[in-house]
Design a protein around this nucleic acid. Structure first.
Lengths: 210, 210, 210, 210
DNA sequence: TTGTAATCGAGACGGTACGTCCAGTCTTCGA
DNA sequence: TCGAAGACTGGACGTACCGTCTCGATTACAA
């Protein structure tokens, strides 16, 4: 980072779009093929047919490059989904909260098993654990928007009387989202539809007898 | 690891205890001072006053060294706790499940804020995210034993009728443990007594109106 | 040089005199301040407030730029000398050959000690040793004209009977000029008035007893 | 150079002779093949099958490496000559000074035309022009020993009455050696047997009529 | 009690990647 | 239309570590 400050700051309007795209592609391809630790700036540059300086000019670290590459990928995916008529900016709301949550969590389970997403997102999550700044960026850009959808759905459920009014939705969603996240991140247990269904049931009804 | 196979297998009985201790100390000190990524085998060896080969002879990677060092530290801490009369092999069981869980989680909150534990455990957690073998070892050695205590306490609560009998305690515990873990690992939110108390309440009583 | 061919040949009439001057000044200043090897095209351009392309358009290499800059400096110096009434296009001819040569060589000794000339001329001489094309240009433009003055003076001496008629003046001058040059270039010995006086004496009278 | 001082100084007794030889060979081969400026440390290391650090550990610069490689080559050549019965530690002394000098200078002319010696010695001479420290080393190790032979021969000539007693041999030798050196270094003129013969004649007999 | 075989500290080795600097080319924009 | 500005590909720089490989010098066990 320090080395960037000293430079006279490059002019973003003259930036080569071609290079940026090539760098994103190379970065994601390498992370997928050889894993994040063996992915090197030098390797990305070579694969992208780009000078190393072009990477160092616009990004401050390998984590930064991979992060933006992944962000870009997500945006493209979102764009594609939007174009395909899907609305990814809201959870389904059939009136049956449990069913809706289970559905969405099952989709998340599938996504977590998709190898195209797994390598870079694990890498970024790991980096974020140890690098607070990047971690917060990762959360703000990638995680929080998804979590917000749960907040919205839970509020709707509160309006319908399906969730107690005094519940904080931002915390409530963690009851079923965080366990899944932890199992995936830390290999603390297997991930399955049955598991996520169970989480929803437990979370909605509580552990204590009613 | 591969490089170990080629060696004629070192004789553990002739191992220098002095060196091992020095290596553990150096490893933890460096992780604390300069962070895990800037901690190098070479640096550990120099700091420990030890030849590099002595490290490579007994460990297969930096992650391995730091892992064992941290394990050793934890064991010492546990030992010290035991010596001080505390029993860390069981959760309190006052009959009030909610209160017992809140108490233990508050202690965990404190631990997570302890800088001596934070650097190495974050580093290992991060490494484990990306390195499945190490991740599983980390969980098995450090996480699972603690989680087992929750399982025991929940079973006791089931026997007392405070938790429904059809609940799987291994999953149930994740409702309040995983959210805390995720907030700590991924900076998805602040960590406080109030937060963990809320988690316990939500988990025990559920989100749906009763 | 090759890269010049590809360009559509720049139009010298539209060349910016301002830029050329600035480039000469910057080049000589940098060679003086940081030495020839650390002088870079980029540095010259920045110091001259000029685009790199402006340099590459008119010169083929760093050596080329410095060469022309130095040539320009020499011409200016010659001009100034001429303006001051000195005639630098001929050696003194008092009738006493030995005295005349000693005088001129002493002036050369002084010049070789002048730091303003030393850095760039050493740099160019060095470059010329290894780069024949540039070396020959250096000699033709800078050295040969001076040597010609010795040739003229020696011819005049031959006419006066002070030098044998069968002597080749172009070779003869090397007897006292080359030793001085070598001592300066290669640090093979100290340079002083006494030394050059001795050279003249030895050269004129020979080593063998008469 | 600075970076060497900071290191704790490597242990010369543990140095790899194999690597040193390979580095010398690679350096000389590259200088011969692509020229000194295009010879890089990286290239030498690759060609020698050696890590770059092994070069930086023992030498402070490219010039240093090439210098020692050339020195080593010269020593080997001298050794070989010695083994072949030649005595390179003295000039011939037939009693005819002029003939002896002409003979030796003709041999020098041949040597200067030998491409195996030309590339590295030009490179080192050039470097020495601009780098005083290296220049002096070059002279002391390579030039001065040869010049000393001339001094010896001239003294012998003085004893025989063939050279005036008041002549300083160290300066006298420059009358025929330096012109040759300058023509070779700076391309100030062609080099031939006839030329060196002429130099000897002029120097011994002087330019003035007798 | 004395070899003798292993481990030990030390650090040189062949390598890979780092982050920087500059070469030489190409593109944009203002005068 | 040229020149300043500077982004671009490319490649060498000198450094830091990697993991392997000798080296003596302890050191502890078996003879």
């Amino acid at each position: 980072m320090a080395h960037r400050q000293s430079d006279p700051a490059p002019d973003p309007t003259r930036r080569s779009e071609r290079s940026r795209r090539a760098i994103y592609d190379a970065a994601l391809a390498l992370v997928g093929e050889v894993g994040y630790p063996k992915t090197t700036i030098e390797g990305i540059a070579a694969r992208a047919g780009v000078g190393k300086q072009t990477i160092y000019r616009w990004w401050s670290s390998k984590a930064d490059v991979v992060m933006e590459a992944f962000l870009d990928l997500s945006e493209q995916a979102a764009e594609a989904a939007r174009a395909a008529g899907q609305e990814s900016y809201a959870l389904p709301d059939t009136g049956d909260l449990a069913a809706d949550l289970k559905l969405v969590l099952r989709a998340t389970v599938d996504e977590l098993h998709d190898p195209a997403f797994e390598a870079p997102s694990r890498a970024l999550a790991a980096e974020g654990v140890v690098n607070e700044e990047l971690g917060r960026r990762f959360v703000a850009k990638l995680l929080e928007p998804s979590l917000q959808l749960y907040v919205d759905r839970l509020r709707s459920a509160q309006a319908a009387g399906d969730v107690r009014a005094d519940i904080d939705p931002r915390i409530a969603l963690e009851l079923f989202v965080s366990p899944l996240a932890q199992r995936w991140l830390q290999y603390t247990g297997p991930i399955s539809y049955e598991y996520t269904d169970t989480l929803v049931d437990y979370a909605l009804n509580g552990l204590a007898p009613r």
